[in-house]
Write a protein that binds this DNA or RNA. Structure first.
Lengths: 135, 135
DNA sequence: CATACTGTAATAAAATATATTACAAATGTA
DNA sequence: TACATTTGTAATATATTTTATTACAGTATG
């Protein structure tokens, strides 16, 4: 199972891009995603830590973009929410006394590293503005 | 969380490639992966359904490759265990009355489709033989 | 000073992944 | 034939992760 973080964060940012001059409340955003507002605020906390958005507390508060949508790429969103793409690892430490068990994770990692490079290249070419313009 | 299916199946197939003339037991394979043998047998059932391996029941039974390792690519393993790569979706149906909610999943899907194409191209170029030769 | 927000912690519920137990059926071998 | 070993598969339990909810302190606005 893959968490919805990337999708949720992208959804949030798309909304903020569509209303660049408004402070949107977590309640409003949650209504579009159909998600609990607390979880929206958590993802926003992550975006704030990366200085992508800014929030205002109190009445009529909310969140807006801190950076122009043309300056943010999907790669950055990916990195903020996903770390890196991979096809998974077995849960337990494989048997180090077996030549395959000993190197399997290392070999998978290097496969996944290549994968990330390709995916990153793709995502790097798409700005938040590009993505938002599809709506 | 990403399940270990791809990693586990690749591990199994690497072992079978290393011992192309033997029927390996699920117990033996499980010992290398450090995984419950029942789960190994489940992944093997999947491989059998795809005619990649064959099994023999009873004493001295086990599993061996049914196809030469040079004829199997990581893309096939990927497709048997993962379906397609993506960065996830929000769990709940987004609000269809919001222009963004209405199209977000569709736009994410098309992004992920591109991603799959790139990843597939990479995995297609690596045979099980190639992968196994790294050990 | 009442209202409407954010921020965050604590806890609960739901979903998924992995592990275990159990046993029928198959097959090799003494 | 009888026994041991192995697959195949179902049922159930445990662990982990993801999402949801509740609660409430703090902050800004009017």
């Amino acid at each position: 199972m893959i968490s919805g973080k990337f999708a949720i964060t992208t959804h949030i940012l798309t909304l903020l891009t569509k209303f660049p001059n408004d402070y949107l409340s977590s309640e409003f955003i949650a209504g579009s995603i159909n998600l609990n507002p607390v979880l929206v605020r958590k993802e926003i906390a992550n975006l704030k830590a990366h200085h992508i958005v800014e929030s205002k507390e109190g009445k009529n508060g909310g969140t807006k973009l801190a950076v122009d949508a043309s300056k943010i790429t999907l790669k950055e969103i990916f990195e903020m929410t996903f770390e890196n793409i991979n096809l998974g690892y077995a849960k337990n430490q494989p048997n180090p006394d077996c030549p395959v068990g000993k190197k399997i994770n290392q070999n998978l990692s290097s496969l996944y590293a290549d994968m990330n490079q390709k995916v990153s290249l793709q995502l790097e070419g798409i700005t938040l503005e590009d993505f938002s313009n599809q709506f």
